[in-house]
Structure formats: structure tokens, C-alpha cells
Simulated assay, not measured.
Amino acid sequence: MNTLIKPDLAAIKIRNKLLPGDLGYIAHIHGDLYARECGYGLNFEAYVLQGLKDFALEYDEAKDKVWICEHGSRIVGCLVAQHRSDVLQLRYFIFLPEYRGIGLGKKLMEEFLDFMKSGSYSNAYLWTTEEQHSAIALYSRYGFKLSDEKPSAAFGKELVERRYDLVLNQ
């Protein structure tokens, strides 16, 4: 039996500076990976592209943060914290499959929470789908609570979108 050797967490470089090409690659990872894993269509990729366009146009280094995960010269995952007035939205949290389960998600969640606290944000939220079981488990471990659900066909198939909110104790 041939098993894949997982990359070492220490070998992953996390960059917080947004560079030209990053947003396009984030859209590519989402479109490609979710088409293969979840059967999402072009509408999902268009949704991601629209959100990334808005993020780029509103990007403020003092209020927003990116975590671009690189292994060698390859982007292998990311997380975006986008300001929404006085609330922070967690977005585009994704890793290539071979980089899951090595502690990278936990590391970025902790850095997201540190950024929240350092920016004086007490509230954050995210949207995901019912199919994202591992991600939902991670969000729940860090205090996010389900706050809304809505049926959707926006991603090329019928599913349920879910909103999770986090309120930090003051």
C-alpha cells in the first residue's frame, strides 16, 4: 500500500503581503478544487471572482489581512480576513488536499483570532456550505456558531449555505 507523505508544517511559509497574481490563483484553487470535490460549477467560480474583485478594490492593509501559504514557490492555501465596517469576515479559507490535516488550518485560525483582537474586532462571520464538514468542525472548535441557513442553487447545484458568527468575550 502506497501512502502519501504529508508535508511538514514547518516547511510551509506564510506570507501576509498580497502580491499581484495572488487573487487570480485563489480563484483558480477554489474553482478547480470545488468542481472536483463538490461538483460546483462556473457560477461558483464567478461568485469567488466577484468577491475577490471587491476585496481587491476595498483592500486596506490596516483593516484586512491575508495569509498566503507557500510550499517552495507554490501557493498551497490561503485565508483572507476582510473588514466589513466593524465586523471581520473570514473568507477564502482553502488548502490543496495534500496540505490538509497537518495543523495549517489550526495555525491560521489562531492567527485570524490574533488579528481580530489586535484590530479591536469583537465580531466575525463567515459563509460556507453544509458540505464542508471538516471546515465547520474547525470553525466550531474556535467558537463560531451557526446563525443562518439558506437554500441555494448559486453554485451550480442545490445546497444549503450556512453563516457562522463569532463573538469574542470582551
Rank of each mutant, 00 (worst) to 15 (best):
M109D: 09
D86Y: 06
G21R: 13
L57D: 12
I68M: 13
G31N: 07
V48Q: 03
Q170P: 02
G156F: 00
M1H: 12
G105S: 14
D114M: 12
G24E: 14
E110M: 11
Y139L: 03
H28I: 01
I26T: 04
G156R: 08
F144M: 07
H83C: 10
I5K: 15
Y92K: 09
A10E: 12
L96V: 13
L9T: 14
L23Y: 11
Y40N: 05
D32V: 15
T129V: 09
D165K: 07
K145P: 01
L166V: 05
F155S: 03
K157Q: 10
Y40W: 13
E111T: 06
I68L: 10
Q89D: 09
K145G: 09
C38Q: 13
F93D: 00
G21Y: 11
S122V: 04
V80F: 08
G72H: 11
Y40V: 02
H83W: 07
C69W: 00
L90P: 01
R100M: 06
Y40D: 01
P7F: 10
I94H: 04
R74N: 13
Y164S: 02
Y139P: 00
K65W: 00
Y139C: 01
P7S: 13
R163D: 01
F112N: 04
F155Q: 02
G31L: 06
V160I: 14
L23I: 13
A81S: 10
E161H: 03
F155W: 06
L9A: 13
R141D: 07
K107C: 11
N2W: 11
A62P: 00
F55P: 00
F144I: 04
G41Q: 07
S73L: 12
L79D: 04
L168Y: 06
P151I: 02
K107R: 15
V160C: 07
Q82K: 10
N43D: 14
D8S: 15
R15D: 15
Y99W: 14
C78N: 15
F44L: 05
E130Y: 09
P7V: 09
Y47E: 09
L18V: 08
R163W: 00
L19S: 15
D54Y: 09
A11S: 15
I29P: 02
D165W: 04
D86S: 10
F112E: 03
Y92C: 03
R162Y: 01
E37F: 11
F44V: 02
R141N: 11
A10W: 03
V66R: 00
G105D: 09
Y142C: 07
D148C: 08
H30P: 03
P7M: 12
Y139R: 03
S118H: 11
F115S: 12
L42G: 11
K63H: 03
T128Y: 06
G51C: 05
F93E: 00
L52M: 05
G41R: 06
L126G: 01
Y92I: 01
T128K: 06
A27F: 01
Q82H: 06
E111V: 02
E131Q: 15
H28K: 14
G119F: 00
E58C: 07
D165E: 10
Q132W: 07
F93C: 00
K150S: 08
F95H: 05
V48T: 06
E70L: 10
E161Q: 15
W127N: 01
